[in-house]
């Protein structure tokens, strides 16, 4: 399945379009998506540190999705680097 990962904060610098699309097997876990994204960022956006993807959370519009969860069926997901509001 095609997964569109919307980028925020410092991770926006990973792709000027504001998102990254990856092909993932159906029912992939968030942990697997994280690993695939780390490889993608390593190859396509080397200035972004691997640690930043590690420290980021994934989320739908409704909730944070931790590593054991599966990627949403609609293939829409966001990656949230460490937050700094207020």
């Amino acid at each position: 399945m095609k997964v569109r990962i919307t980028l925020f904060g410092a991770l926006r610098d990973a792709d000027s379009r504001g998102y990254i699309e990856l092909d993932m097997p159906e029912q992939s876990t968030i942990a697997a998506l994280r690993e695939a994204l780390q490889h993608h960022v390593h190859d396509h956006a080397p200035p972004i540190s691997a640690g930043l993807v590690q420290r980021s959370a994934f989320a739908s519009e409704h909730e944070i999705l931790h590593n054991h969860r599966t990627v949403p069926e609609d293939g829409q997901i966001a990656i949230l680097p460490p937050v700094s509001g207020g």
């Binding site: 904060g9 420290r55 980021s56 959370a57 944070i64 590593n67 680097p81 460490p82």
Partner: peptide, 9 residues
């Protein structure tokens, strides 16, 4: 970008 708090468990 400001350094922030991780939301990753």
């Amino acid at each position: 970008w400001s350094e922030g708090c991780s939301l990753c468990e």
